[in-house]
């Protein structure tokens, strides 16, 4: 048994990044080879029963069942997130809901999701950009634990303006996972990028590596934090809290495996974009209504 465990481990290590399908097949193939090798030796030495048993053990190791989440099989889902920036009204209920649902550090410096405001004034070339963590907006809301955009452009000649919600992009090729030295952050089979808080050493390399600024260091727990798509909700058939509370349906969540899901319709019926495609991170957070200046 120890021997097989060892083989399993080496098979994994050789694959390096085991998040994509190829690596899985490769690993399975490798284990089959090992299984065959073991089997042929076994055939020489022992009876056919022993051979069968060895084969079964090798196959069992190659196909672990899904994680023990009641009523949920991650093999059945491929989650995706959509943001229709043309609908966003900048009410920030999503930000408040996220903080409450996930007990996020209640300051203006720690967010799992946030909203940006882009405003071009007439005659100006570059937009004014701010988020609710801007000190003036914090002052307008009255505290760091409430969220509001102030009305600073009232009476000014505005050429163009819109809001853009931001959230972890749960990339297909997440650079945060790539750089994590321990394997404390990982991409699940159903598409979420999660952090194992009990395993994270708090080096913050992932915070550096994320091109989107989606990660932060939790000063209370001394480990890194980020959006989980409310993994405790989606595994119970609910939507993430930000999606649940959005009053204008600017945030969409669902199963990309299901053609009839909101997210599948969102992606197929619109021409969607992702943020910073040049990074090669391949986000699974899709946007409608971005602008050349949004990054």
């Amino acid at each position: 048994m120890t021997c097989e465990k060892d083989i399993d481990r080496r098979g994994q290590t050789a694959q390096g990044d085991e998040d994509d399908g190829d690596a899985r097949t490769g690993r399975r193939g490798f284990l089959k080879d090992v299984g065959k090798a073991v089997a042929s030796i076994g055939a020489l030495a022992a009876s056919g029963t022993a051979l069968l048993a060895t084969k079964q053990t090798a196959q069992a190791a190659a196909e672990p069942g899904p994680p023990a989440i009641a009523g949920y099989d991650w093999n059945e889902h491929q989650w995706g997130y959509g943001i229709d920036a043309t609908r966003c009204i900048g009410c920030l209920r999503c930000v408040e809901a996220c903080k409450a649902e996930n007990d996020v550090v209640p300051t203006a410096h720690h967010f799992r999701t946030w909203v940006e405001r882009y405003v071009w004034l007439e005659g100006e070339e570059r937009p004014h950009v701010d988020s609710h963590s801007d000190p003036d907006n914090v002052a307008a809301s009255g505290s760091e634990k409430e969220y509001r955009f102030d009305n600073r452009y009232q009476g000014k000649k505005v050429y163009k303006a819109f809001f853009v919600p931001k959230i972890c992009n749960h990339c297909r090729h997440p650079s945060c996972v790539q750089v994590c030295p321990t394997g404390a952050t990982f991409k699940t089979k159903d598409g979420a990028v999660l952090i194992d808080h009990s395993y994270c050493i708090g080096c913050q390399y992932c915070v550096q590596a994320c091109p989107y600024g989606a990660r932060f260091f939790d000063p209370r727990t001394q480990v890194t934090e980020k959006c989980t798509w409310c993994y405790h909700r989606i595994t119970k058939g609910l939507k993430p809290a930000c999606v649940e509370v959005c009053p204008v349906n600017a945030r969409i969540f669902g199963d990309l495996n299901n053609e009839a899901s909101d997210i599948s319709k969102f992606v197929t019926e619109n021409r969607v974009q992702v943020l910073k495609p040049e990074t090669g991170n391949a986000p699974t957070c899709f946007y409608v209504g971005l602008d050349k200046e949004v990054s």
Partner: peptide, 23 residues
């Protein structure tokens, strides 16, 4: 290494927790 380079128990641990927004 059960599912990849991470603790296989972690996903189930992260799925624990009662939703606060009940709908």
């Amino acid at each position: 290494y059960r599912y990849g380079h991470y603790r296989g128990d972690a996903p189930a641990e992260l799925a624990v927790g009662d939703p606060k927004f009940r709908g």
